[in-house]
Nucleic acid binder design. Structure first.
Lengths: 118, 118
DNA sequence: ATAGTATATATAGATGATCTATATATGTCA
DNA sequence: TGACATATATAGATCATCTATATATACTAT
């Protein structure tokens, strides 16, 4: 299923930080990795990703360095900072709160709240 | 927790349709009901809601009628149409797919997919 | 009465995250 | 050498939300 772009808004940065929380990656790799992990649901566009990476770097959330991979071209790898890890945790908490609330409205009970709600 | 507005994008229309799928409501009531059901997480602004209702009506997803409530002022009630119910089902399927995919990226496994993924 | 607050609907303009389109350049394969 | 995948970059468009503002009625306290 193709996901409407407006649904993606707000979660893309969190997903990028999550990828970098696992290992250092370069941009193109993140696009492929997101596609793989989501089973082709997320097809992040390069025109979306690179500006986000630049602004994350500007904000000190990630750092970049060039590396020659397998003697081929140089790739720009990104590494998450402690500040970025903190931001990721905040984003994830917000995500959990958000989806729980939506599911409460949708079904009367949140998936993670069926023991405590009501 | 306060939810970033960009996260809300894309789900607001679905939530409105869900409310109307339960019972006819007027705008102000939807704002209060969303707040109540989400335990104050969603504070939908009037300036967001009314334009959405107008465009839903224009698209034949909802119909409106005026009704005097308890002998007080007239309120504009909205009623979901069959077309609107179909749209709601589509939006909900998209929502489920989206959150499952995000959770797959976040945790390796989707909440609803831990038996089938991998 | 009347001033303030809650209820109720409406619209214009700002914001911000995504998209498309385009540009550039290298590596691989036929 | 021509086509395609890889890889990064940026400008401008789109669109759903927000804030701010406007209007009007009902209720409550002074």
């Amino acid at each position: 299923m193709k996901i409407d772009k407006s649904l993606m808004a707000g979660s893309t940065t969190m997903l990028i930080l999550k990828l970098l929380d696992t290992e250092d990656m370069y941009g193109y790799q993140m696009i492929e990795e997101l596609e793989r992990r989501s089973q082709n649901v997320f097809t992040l566009k390069a025109g979306t990703l690179y500006p986000i990476l630049h602004s994350l770097e500007q904000g000190g959330m990630v750092e970049s360095y060039d590396r020659l991979s397998e003697g081929k071209r140089t790739r720009k790898y990104y590494s998450i900072t402690n500040k970025g890890k903190k931001l990721f945790k905040e984003k994830q908490a917000e995500w959990d709160c958000y989806t729980t609330s939506v599911n409460q409205v949708l079904g009367g009970f949140g998936l993670c709240n069926h023991l405590t709600s009501m």
